[in-house]
Amino acid sequence: MPDVVPSRDELVAAIREIRNEHPEFGIKRIWSKLKETRAWELSEKRVQKLLKEEPALNDRGVSDHLVRDAMSGTAEHKRQEFMGCEISCERPSPRAYISLCTHPTKTDTLIIFGGEHYNGVKNIFHNDVYFLNISDGQWSRISLPDSAARPEPRSAHQAWIWSDSMYIFGGEWSSPGGQKFKVLNDLWRLDIPTLLWTRLECPGGPSPRSGHRVAVAGTRAVLYGGLTATKYCQDLHVFDLPAHRWRPRVDPPAA
């Protein structure tokens, strides 16, 4: 199957995903990553031209120190640039392998993130967030500024609620034609009051995987199992939620 030429919107979305995951990447590395993960006919010159025309794509995202210092003047202003807003909408497009959580402050509201859908021609993966009010059946979603950080599209991840935040870990993604496939082990936190995504850099966590399970016990999130690109997992990991730190891995006893 010949490579396809991406539309401008598709290319902007793909570059934004790479910027969120690799804020240190320059033009050449962004172009190389696009060629590696997408079956696209794409020149480095087109990537360079788009980055010049779309200044928002050159914003390297919100960093941890901005979040920690968010109440100081400049940092607070910068932080507000990345906050989302909730808007009314129709129900989400068809999808499977989503995550579903209860809203931390609205007990009649569910939070849906991600998922995938095969439309008979190509695979479509999602990274949007929807809210469903089960009392009145009304849908809403998060609308983010173009420059805001966010997780890349995925399915078969896990999400959980603690305090006033939703966390997501891992999952899987494939290119539209299925030529490329990867499993993930990134950890993200969505602050529900501000609708601000932050990627958490926490060493010592689980290997990339999808289909795992997570349960919250007090101030700890306990993750078990899953599937890597080559094998099933049976290890157990504990994440200290207040400290944002992975504890040492627990392996199953020898047979």
Score class of each variant (00 low, 15 high):
156 A>T: 05
16 R>K: 15
153 P>A: 04
94 P>Q: 07
226 G>A: 08
18 I>D: 04
134 I>F: 14
114 G>K: 01
222 V>D: 02
234 Q>C: 15
9 D>N: 10
189 R>Q: 15
225 G>W: 04
78 K>A: 15
64 D>Y: 06
141 R>L: 09
185 N>F: 00
116 E>T: 10
231 K>H: 14
25 F>H: 14
219 T>N: 15
212 H>Y: 01
7 S>M: 04
11 L>R: 04
144 L>V: 06
213 R>L: 13
191 D>K: 08
145 P>M: 07
45 K>T: 10
104 P>T: 03
110 L>A: 05
206 P>V: 08
163 S>R: 14
30 I>G: 00
136 D>V: 09
84 G>Y: 03
149 A>S: 15
85 C>G: 09
198 T>G: 06
174 S>W: 02
186 D>M: 07
88 S>P: 00
65 H>Y: 13
41 E>N: 14
74 T>P: 09
118 Y>T: 01
89 C>Y: 02
227 L>V: 12
99 S>T: 15
196 L>K: 00
73 G>E: 14
66 L>A: 07
216 V>K: 07
174 S>M: 12
163 S>I: 03
57 L>N: 04
192 I>W: 02
91 R>W: 00
70 A>D: 05
55 P>Q: 08
205 G>I: 06
57 L>K: 04
242 P>N: 07
5 V>M: 07
25 F>P: 11
106 K>Y: 09
31 W>D: 01
152 E>K: 12
23 P>L: 09
156 A>V: 02
126 H>C: 01
127 N>M: 03
196 L>M: 06
121 V>Q: 12
116 E>Y: 08
233 C>R: 11
202 C>Q: 04
131 F>R: 05
31 W>R: 04
78 K>N: 13
149 A>L: 12
214 V>P: 06
133 N>A: 04
149 A>K: 10
133 N>Y: 02
42 L>A: 01
1 M>Q: 09
55 P>Y: 11
97 Y>A: 14
72 S>H: 09
72 S>L: 11
222 V>Q: 01
250 V>G: 03
80 Q>P: 02
19 R>F: 07
193 P>G: 10
189 R>P: 08
236 L>T: 14
96 A>T: 07
47 V>I: 11
249 R>H: 00
165 S>G: 05
28 K>Y: 04
217 A>D: 14
231 K>S: 15
21 E>T: 09
143 S>M: 08
201 E>A: 13
200 L>C: 06
40 W>V: 06
60 R>F: 09
80 Q>V: 05
40 W>A: 02
208 P>G: 07
203 P>T: 07
159 A>T: 12
190 L>D: 05
234 Q>P: 00
178 G>K: 08
179 Q>F: 15
13 A>E: 08
210 S>N: 13
68 R>V: 13
120 G>H: 08
124 I>R: 02
100 L>W: 01
129 V>F: 11
255 A>F: 11
167 Y>L: 06
120 G>C: 09
30 I>R: 01
124 I>G: 00
151 P>N: 05
249 R>F: 00
168 I>E: 05
183 V>Q: 10
233 C>T: 09
12 V>T: 05
147 S>N: 11
32 S>M: 11
6 P>G: 07
78 K>E: 15
27 I>G: 03
197 W>L: 06
144 L>M: 14
174 S>E: 11
163 S>P: 01
248 P>C: 09
179 Q>N: 13
34 L>D: 01
46 R>C: 06
85 C>A: 12
191 D>E: 13
131 F>G: 03
9 D>Q: 14
148 A>I: 10
25 F>G: 10
6 P>D: 00
187 L>Q: 02
